[in-house]
């Protein structure tokens, strides 16, 4: 009886912690919302957007990120089916793709710099491209850490409940930053 009560309290604890990630997602969305609102008000009052052709690399990085999300989904599915070895494999692929995404984003900045669209710019809209993509990379970094902790949990075979918890928060966060990037990219495409 005592055990089951403790078990129940522990379950509530995990549920509450998972909810924390959701709330973080909300507040992070609002931060990016702040920047895109800045962009909208700025371009409405100046009558101009960033006015450049976004680097092609952004397309590749977007695809990479989408594929990484798919692999994380596969990892969750493998985990649910008890197929732990493919879970580990898919998680590792997710991490690698995440790193690739980061590298591609930095390359994209490089190509923007080469075309003369510098960060410190008299067109704040161009500076904002760097700001939003830069802060998105910070999120990617945090996401990689979460996926890595899920991977470590799988290797160390920690208690099942905690492995589920790590998988869940990694999934919530990783899919969120995936959608977030698509939002930012589409936003920048539409408001050039």
């Amino acid at each position: 009886m005592v055990q089951s009560i403790k078990q129940e309290e522990l379950g509530i604890q995990f549920k509450a912690k998972k909810f924390i990630i959701w709330l973080f997602v909300v507040s992070s969305t609002i931060m990016f919302g702040g920047w895109t609102s800045y962009y909208i008000v700025f371009s409405a009052s100046k009558g101009k957007g960033h006015g450049i052709v976004l680097p092609e690399l952004f397309i590749y990085s977007t695809v990479v990120l989408l594929v990484s999300s798919a692999f994380l989904f596969l990892a969750s599915k493998a985990f649910k089916n008890g197929n732990y070895s493919s879970q580990k494999l898919f998680l590792s692929i997710t991490i690698l793709l995440g790193i690739t995404f980061g590298v591609l984003q930095v390359d994209a900045w490089g190509s923007m710099v080469r075309t003369g669209a510098f960060f410190s710019n008299n067109n704040a809209a161009i500076s904002l491209i760097y700001v939003v993509s830069g802060f998105h990379i910070l999120h990617i970094f945090a996401g990689i850490c979460l996926v890595f902790s899920a991977l470590m949990g799988a290797y160390k075979e920690i208690p099942l409940q905690r492995r589920i918890y790590r998988m869940e928060i990694a999934s919530i966060f990783w899919h969120f930053i995936d959608i977030l990037w698509i939002y930012l990219y589409v936003f920048l495409l539409l408001n050039s």
Binding site: S27, I30, M31, G34, V131
Partner: peptide, 14 residues
């Protein structure tokens, strides 16, 4: 706080 403080961060970063 959750809904408004992130906007301050956005402003402060800029």
């Amino acid at each position: 706080g959750i809904l408004s403080f992130p906007v301050l961060v956005a402003g402060v970063v800029l």
